[in-house]
Write a protein that binds this DNA or RNA. Structure first.
Lengths: 193, 193
DNA sequence: ACCTGAACACCGTTCAAGT
DNA sequence: ACCTGAACACCGTTCAAGT
């Protein structure tokens, strides 16, 4: 039976879940699928593209936030959903980061953040800054957490003392406070003109 | 003549400057130093540790900000200095990111951010959140920019349309506005008690 | 103290060929 | 359309041995 792109992504997820990103080689993935390494190159042009698709897949369950929420609550909701999706799959934040950097990812989640910011009435540049600040926070902090978790799992390191969830909450609170403040400043400026 | 740790880091920087992180292999680095690959393992236990040292080295010129600045201006100054140091060496943001994640980096720059936040009178959790938000923004956005730049340099992609400097300024403005707002809320709470 | 030689166990990717 | 066999040009790391 022939293999599909979906099979490949599922197998890749499974390698991350049971092992790590370091173990996610084309050869290993092929073995897991009972196929020769070259077979993967019929479905994806290269590893980079495969990883970008995997990253998009992992974030695919981040949908538009409930529309009875205020704009800032919607931002928070999307940010937390992104982080939850990443935390469900080991090393996924690193995968998403590389996909975004390579330009091979759709970065579709960012639209939900942008939409919420627009509904808040933020200017184009304020929206852009806000989306960047939130996205980099989610990805970057989760990379650090997941790398740490892998090291603990391998026993190369003892348990750390950082509370990543609390750190995330604190950082997100600052960014959202900034968003509200920038919006308020905009409103005053508009009213004065 | 024997090689020093400093020589190794200088050669690594040069490989980044003239080529890329993908070209920075232990074997390539050794060749550049006129030495056998194994020689590097006398100076550093493994590649990960070497990269962490390189990351620290690249950020070493980010010093304490001028002390005649306000606390929030100091935060901005450190953030911009971090970004400037990274932008001076191709792919360095990725190197710093991996060093931070592995736990092998000193993350010394974060102290300057923490100090400025403390002088602003921010609570411990607000400081932690603020430092995280700024650090992840600098690293994450610069990774995206530098990866893009390498792709353009290799001609695999045409020039993009993102203005990373403007994006950074917008995002940093939001975070700093958040810091000031959180501080104001703290001050009110303190006065009321 | 600092390095080399030789080897181990891997990589991503390509290309021709098979069904 | 989908895959295999065989090969190319690499990796990081280790270990014994050299000076």
């Amino acid at each position: 039976m022939a293999i599909t792109r979906t099979d490949v992504l599922a197998a890749a997820r499974e390698v991350l879940r049971r092992h790590s990103l370091a173990d996610l080689s084309m050869r290993r993935l092929a073995t897991e699928l009972g196929v020769s390494p070259n077979a993967l190159y019929w479905h994806y042009p290269d590893k980079q593209t495969l990883l970008a698709a995997l990253g998009d897949d992992i974030l695919a369950d981040v949908t538009a936030p409930a529309d009875d929420l205020e704009w800032d609550e919607r931002l928070e909701s999307v940010a937390r959903a992104m982080r939850a999706s990443l935390c469900a799959v080991p090393d996924s934040a690193e995968v998403v980061s590389s996909g975004w950097s390579s330009g091979l990812s759709t970065m579709a989640v960012l639209d939900h953040l942008t939409d919420a910011a627009r509904d808040g009435g933020l200017s184009a540049s304020a929206r852009r800054g806000l989306v960047t600040a939130i996205a980099q926070l989610v990805i970057g902090l989760t990379i650090e957490q997941q790398t740490r978790q892998q090291m603990e799992r391998l026993g190369v390191t003892g348990p750390g003392d950082r509370d990543y969830d609390a750190e995330f909450a604190d950082a997100l609170a600052i960014v959202l406070a900034g968003a509200r403040q920038v919006r308020a400043a905009q409103t005053v400026a508009t009213a004065a003109s």
